[in-house]
Design a protein around this nucleic acid. Sequence first.
DNA 1: GGCGCCATGTGACGAATGTCATACCCACAT
DNA 2: ATGTGGGTATGACATTCGTCACATGGCGCC
Lengths: 200, 200
Amino acid sequence: MIRVVVAEDQALVLGALAALIDAESDLTVVARVRDGDAALEAITTQAADVLVTDIEMPNRSGLDVAAEIQRRKLRCRVVIVTTFARAGYLRRALDAGAGGYILKDSPAEELANAIRRGHQGGRVIAPELAVEAWQEADPLTDRERQVLRLAGEGASAARVAEQCHLSEGTVRNYLSSAIAKVGGDNRIEAARIAREKGWL
Amino acid sequence: MIRVVVAEDQALVLGALAALIDAESDLTVVARVRDGDAALEAITTQAADVLVTDIEMPNRSGLDVAAEIQRRKLRCRVVIVTTFARAGYLRRALDAGAGGYILKDSPAEELANAIRRGHQGGRVIAPELAVEAWQEADPLTDRERQVLRLAGEGASAARVAEQCHLSEGTVRNYLSSAIAKVGGDNRIEAARIAREKGWL
DNA sequence: GGCGCCATGTGACGAATGTCATACCCACAT
DNA sequence: ATGTGGGTATGACATTCGTCACATGGCGCC
């Protein structure tokens, strides 16, 4: 019996995923949690074999949890289940030693499959991503990313400068460089592109 | 036995929701579909009592399907299940005669509950939304919405003008007016605000 | 020790954006 | 018939944005 912890912030989806997993005869859900901190706690107290987790959650993202598991050298394997087919996310997931990365729109059998493979030490990666993943590395520097994120939310150069303690001119320089790097026509497009690639 | 059709574009979530519903003794899932067109077809061929549907789907949104069901005077009731706590969405859902509007982060029992209530002709609305719903009506005109949407995706005034067959000056006028109406400092913020309220 | 990269800054210039006044046409309501 | 509001347009203006050249300093690296 493989002991599974499920982490997902949307309660309905959490319950549903758990139902799906529990329906498998060789899998059992030992905890359902709604954020990253609770996930970390549950996998130790429940001696879980596999953590099935979303990425976007309160407190700690699924990627953070995976990284923490790796850092603490816990035995638990991680399967990331997410909406986002973003190369940047997959890359970070693999860097964090995740055993699986599947998309919420892959067929339901995939999930049980990935859990079993992960438990055996293998890896399952959503085929949509396998190829593309390592082709495009994030070209942005930390500052560029930070500035682009704020600007993408509607902040003016002046506002960004204030929040980052930079001069307005510097902010415009970073933006210009970020726009050029991601290949957009303006800050809005650049932010959109970067978001889609998982760089923000 | 209440006959339920489940519509949701993410296969994993679709399977999971269906599992959740099928686990209820008085509910049975008679079809699982991944877009709006298939949903409409399924509810007639399967003589469904209730449609449980996401909003954002290919071909036809869940809101479109609800409206179409109302237009065709079908017997089937509709329960909207969505991520988005947006007043604009709820408003459109109620206009389309939806029998339920619940959020993906409400507890799992809510879903079965809403299906039963809907089937009896009642209404279940996510409490987070019930109050706020009618307070803020969409202040945008069709043109303003259209222009703001494109601009929010990164299109320049010139590009928007081209796509909408307008003059560039007119586009700027609409944008200016939209920015003022939603209360933002620039097109980016305005688009973000409007998206959050479900006006785009 | 120099080379490249990043962080940071300034100054300048042209392009895009946001605002405003003003105008015309049309539909719909009073 | 008169007013109100939307759709469309133009011209003008100030502001913001995007780009470029150029400068300084720090850090890592062969």
